[in-house]
Write a protein that binds this DNA or RNA. Structure first.
Length: 574
DNA sequence: ATAGGGTTAG
């Protein structure tokens, strides 16, 4: 019997599969569940097979068994329309066929891929109903499905209720937290796992490193890297890629490059892209472009992510013509442009004041431009005081139902700077009517191996009075050097003095003040912000770096700012 | 009746 199975692994095209199918039918083996569902499964999931042909065979089976259904559901779960697997499951139940643990496993995978939280929840019920709830593998699949669908609370409950957990369960929890923007908790689970006597494997460290990257947690990241080398996990490309990314995002491009050039395993395109992006984030456009050119020599062609990283590098280094050339060369390289490439080039042109050209590029897009594109153009209009173009962009934003505070602020500021007070009032009215939402800004900083989080105007830190006192001192000292708060970054119906206060307690300022009072003078201060740094904080921190003789590194949403002796590596271009 | 399923970087 086993020979049919062996033949199956030798099939590498649909005609082969059909031949084997014919053979099974003529010898009567097709009636045996085993050979038949093996064939179905192979046909539905391997690259040699075809899902539609598998479905065709399946439809001719008079009374499909659980295994036959499983093969089709598995194939559908891996297809472009994963939710078809759920539909198939419904048919299976209607045909009164009983699901087993594998049926549930495949359908849950489908839910996770489709981000279908409600369906995942319903399958949780099915799992209990069919008595397979005690299966550890299935529990992990379920936990992972909840996490991928964004329901991290359900995922945690699942995890805590598990009576036995193996390394994959921990890995799913750590990766889930890291990917769900809860990096602190990811690291907590990582710590707990080790306290429970388990040794992290290559999958574990990927999740933990990703959490460190998000937090800019350099010390923790370096400890994990030591462990990786100790356990020889660095013969895995994915692990190397994650280490490079971690060092890059923690502000140590040189360390990232050391790892990149010292890799013992073969680099993939992702490795190259990660390194190009790291240079881009640090504003080192020349090195980024050098690497971008070298990547082709490694036998790899740049893909859309490579181009995005290179464009980003041009943006952060102010290389306008290089960027434009790169953008135009995409077509002949056969790499499709997506909305992010357009965004990058519009940003590039917008900063250089080439607003008409930027507008033309948006207009030439084959797909609809998104909100971010118009916001980028609007921002450039503000910088160059172009009211007509700003109105065009804002009109588009309003049409698209924008609710972002920044759009309204920009337009309002532009009107204000031209003394068009009626229009300012109109924009404010529109803001009220639309319940504009504002993403809260927060910053992280690490002191003594502990990561502290600050929210704008935060008073939750035990030493908040000391921090605010330090900020008062800072404000006094930088004012002596000519600092004037840039209150036009704030749009509220409040007095001038209050505006200064809102700005004065931005999360990045709180983090810097806290670091100043709690670290020694030799260590550079490192701060990590979720949004882009505001112009006022940028000016203030430049002065702080000079007066307090401290190097301050701020990573914002898009890049690194290294402040030293009164200037920043972004050269005020970001 | 036999086996198969979970965690993975830009």
């Amino acid at each position: 019997m086993a020979y049919a199975e062996k033949l199956l692994t030798k099939c590498n095209s649909l005609p082969h599969i059909k031949q084997l199918q014919a053979h099974l039918i003529t010898t009567g083996l097709f009636k045996s569940y085993f050979s038949r569902s093996k064939l179905l499964d192979f046909c539905a999931t391997s690259s040699a097979g075809s899902l539609s042909y598998a479905t065709f065979i399946f439809n001719h089976i008079p009374h499909p068994a659980t295994n036959d259904w499983n093969a089709i559901i598995r194939g559908l779960a891996q297809s472009r329309q994963p939710l078809d697997a759920v539909t198939c499951y419904v048919s299976m139940r209607r045909a009164r066929c009983t699901p087993d643990a594998l049926t549930c496993s495949f359908t849950l995978k489908a839910c996770a891929r489709a981000l279908a939280r409600i369906e995942a929840l319903q399958f949780h019920g099915e799992i209990v109903k069919f008595g397979v709830g005690a299966d550890v593998l299935l529990q992990t699949t379920l936990l992972d499905a909840y996490a991928k669908c964004g329901d991290l609370n359900c995922a945690s409950v699942m995890f805590e209720e598990m009576t036995s957990r193996d390394i994959a369960s921990w890995n799913a929890m750590i990766a889930g937290m890291a990917q769900g923007n809860r990096p602190n908790e990811a690291l907590e689970f990582f710590k707990r796992m080790r306290e429970n006597g388990l040794s992290p494997n290559e999958v574990t460290v990927l999740g933990a490193l990703s959490a460190c990257s998000q937090l800019g947690a350099f010390k923790e990241g370096e400890k994990i890297y030591d462990y990786i080398r100790d356990q020889k996990l660095d013969d895995n490309v994915n692990v190397c890629n994650a280490v490079i990314d971690m060092f890059g995002k923690c502000g140590f491009v040189n360390k990232a490059f050391e790892v990149f050039s010292g890799m013992k395993c073969r680099k993939t395109l992702i490795t190259w892209n990660t390194m190009v992006m790291a240079y881009a984030m640090h504003g080192d456009g020349v090195k980024a472009l050098e690497l971008f050119k070298l990547l082709e020599r490694d036998g790899l062609g740049p893909d859309s992510v490579s181009y995005l990283a290179a464009l980003c590098a041009c943006n952060h280094a102010g290389l306008v013509d290089e960027g434009l050339k790169l953008f135009e060369s995409m077509e002949e390289s056969g790499v499709d442009k997506n909305v992010k490439h357009y965004g990058s080039v519009v940003d590039l042109l917008g900063r250089a004041g080439r607003l008409e050209q930027a507008y033309k590029i948006i207009a030439s897009m084959p797909t609809y431009p998104d909100v971010v594109l118009w916001q980028t153009l609007l921002g450039a209009c503000k910088t160059y005081g172009n009211v007509e173009m700003a109105e065009k962009a804002s009109r588009k934003l309003v049409e698209m139902g924008s609710r972002s505070c920044g759009d309204f602020v920009l337009l309002s500021n532009l009107y204000a700077s031209h003394g068009r007070w009626n229009d300012v009032g109109r924009v404010r009215e529109a803001m009220k009517n639309r319940a504009v939402k504002k993403i809260p800004g927060f910053s992280y900083t690490e002191v003594g191996g502990v990561i502290y989080k600050f929210i704008n105007g935060d008073q939750s830190h035990p030493n908040w009075r000391d921090i605010y006192q330090k900020l008062d001192e800072i404000r006094f000292r930088i004012s002596e050097c000519g600092y004037v708060p840039e209150t036009n970054n704030v749009l509220h119906d409040i007095g001038h003095e209050d505006k200064e206060n809102v700005l004065g307690y931005h999360s990045e300022k709180l983090a810097v003040a806290f670091a100043l009072i709690s670290t020694s003078a030799e260590v550079p201060i490192s701060v990590n912000k979720n949004l882009r740094i505001c112009g006022d904080c940028h000016t203030a921190i430049k002065l702080i770096s000079k007066i307090y003789k401290r190097e301050i590194i701020v990573r914002d949403r898009t890049r690194f700012h290294k402040f030293k002796n009164g200037s920043c590596t972004c050269r005020d271009y970001w």
